[in-house]
Amino acid sequence: MFENIFNAFLIGGIICVIGQLIMDLTPFVITPAHVLVGYVTSGAVISAVGLYEPLIKFGGAGASIPLSGFGHSLAQGAIEGAKTKGLLGAIGGGFESTAVGIVAAILLGLSMATIFNPKG
């Protein structure tokens, strides 16, 4: 029980540090959008070759909460879709598995914007 919490801290921390080091040590100007896109796509690719699942097994939320985990869901959804529903599944499968999170984020964005004002 406590072991998986420690593992989540370790894996989650390491995944985030990689992003920080890329931002600080490379000469490119990296914006949040670049970071998000980079993590989702690389997470999906790593997942497609079967290397992300072991990371989730070990790190739990430490691997599923970073956006590479979002990429992992996309990839697994697409693979699953391709296997069970054929062509349509291959195209729509990724978003079938992630739709809940995306819709939740969008609608929360709308409701937060209705309730709050930006503070600056």
Binding site: V35, A105, M112, A113
Partner: peptide, 25 residues
Amino acid sequence: FGGAGSMVPITGFANSIVSPALEYK
């Protein structure tokens, strides 16, 4: 403070959706 530490988790993704929504209200 956290840089990539707060950007990379799914919470950063949510922040990137909610913050422009607030901003352009």
